[in-house]
Design a protein around this nucleic acid. Sequence first.
RNA 1: CGGGAGCUGGCCUAAUUGGGUAAGGCGCUUGGUUUGGGACCAAGAGAUUGGCGGUUCAAAUCCGCCGCUCCCGACCA
Length: 584
Amino acid sequence: MTLCTNYGILNVMRFTKSLIATLREDPKEAESKSHRILLRGGFIKQLASGIHTYLPLGWCILMKISTIIREELDRIGGQELLLPAISPKEIWEASGRWQDYGDDMFRFKDRKERDYCLCPTHEEIVTDIARTKIRSYRDMPQIWYQIQTKFRDEPRPRFGVIRSRQFIMKDSYTLDVDEKGLDKSFNLHREAYTRIFKRCGLKFEIVDASGGLMGTGESKEFMARVESGEDIIVACSSCDYRANLEAAQGIGQVTSFENGKITEVHTPGKKTVDEVSAFLNILPSNLVKTIFYTAPNNKHIIILLRGDYEINEATIHNKFGFSYQPATADEINKVFGAEPGYIGPQGIKGVDVYADDILKDCTGMITGANHNNYHIKGLNIKRDVKVSEFLNLRTVKPGDTCTRCEGKLELYSGLELGHIFKLGTKYTEKLGATFLDENGKKKPIVMGSYGIGLERIMACACEQKGDDNGAVWPISIAPFDIYLVVLNPSEKEITDAATQSAQALTEAGFSVIVDDRDVTAGIKFNDSDLLGIPIRVTCGPKGLKKNTFDIYMRETKEIFEVERTEIVAKCIEIKEHLYRRIND
RNA sequence: CGGGAGCUGGCCUAAUUGGGUAAGGCGCUUGGUUUGGGACCAAGAGAUUGGCGGUUCAAAUCCGCCGCUCCCGACCA
């Protein structure tokens, strides 16, 4: 403190000395609410598509979020480390993901022409540590985590920092001796994540998820309902069933039609479900869609779905493998002898047919005739098609019935804040990370992996709490606690009073930003709203005459006129109040 | 990857239809008046109009190619 006397207070941020550049108008590239607020408030700056600078205010928020995450992971026994962001190709080839990741991976060569990637995630690297450092069942369980920049060359970056190509992730990895241990590690993360998102002031729900490229074990997502969501949450209106649309299962209304002989109908140029059903004046649910999937070096498959449902590709990938893709028009022509839109399952040899289970007893259906411009009527699934297996292959649609109760399923847009996966031995087997159990038997380590997108927490707070005037940061992640407005900073009396208060508030443990700019009051008030600092203290000539300051709460817009000597006490009261109601 | 929109001083926009050598607001600099919700006066600085090529006496404007950005979809831990 004495060292600073010559410079006055150094620990209070002054607006005039800060890199804060708010924009008066919405930048044209921003359409979603959080993107607009983050850009206008000068929290972030875009450098390229999906690549952003976190300016001091934005970084301040991310640091606050990091602190909360660290506290909660340390609480469950996590150990923080930092893995390299660059990784050589070989380890990714061993896991198979050098290929599986495809174009989503940023790759480059060093001067010796050796291949590297910028890590999109770190399972391989963790497994590499595990295989040399973990040798005995006594070495487990372990929880390792890091907070680090990840790189993914997303095909379509979106909504500012919500889907970007460079982003900060907290990723943790657990190592256990068996499934039971993994369950425990998984549940510890579930609890830690719940506390983290609550402490960040967000509304969220835990939903069933599909593992995707990570693996097929159990996985849960922490989803926030927001407008600019990237995912779709399926929620039951009467029980607590929640799932990502990719993983959701529902019960559809079975419909069937009059049984009869197969007859051909001329449907010139009518290919899609909408076109055919309109042309024949029938319901889409009377149609059977035939979808042909192929995979290199694998057997082709036919998927049958009712016309009013869409396929769930996540199910196809989990059930049959990630290499399966919808066939091209050429492949379809070769196998069915007709163009897409006129194909049907009847009479096709050497290809397995999997039908959605809602079609099981259907009769009187309409599907492609396997020659162009014709469909057939009267398809009886059991009689006319050799179905290998009936499976739930459809994507849930609103109004489907919950599988757990009688409730109806509804769909909401959601933002994935975190994801927890049970990986099992997928990576440890491939990379040879084993240990000796108490009987001296060699076994693969059982892994879990868990991620949180830090910027998404920041964006989510904007989406859920922001208003027309800008951000409304929950006090726990706000870049500052207090925004001190100095009206007429040219008057010494006012500046002195403000400086004194800033000092007192800082000493009381508040982080304070002082708006000491020589601009009109409106600019300062609007910027304080835009920046979303929870508490605003105004020091101006009017109040000073009465020896009072105004205290304004960003979220509720309440204003208190407070005696100068009572400011610190009142701010403490408000801060405590804000922390208490953070999860109301 | 498919569809759509767009790219003009730091930011938002005009001039593009009908080619004539870039205009306004905000911001910035200097001086002055102001100051409880984006105030005012005066004087300044700041642009190879995304890039390359073509047509033309003349291109921000017309044509071609390319790049970049956003939105919808596909895709995606």
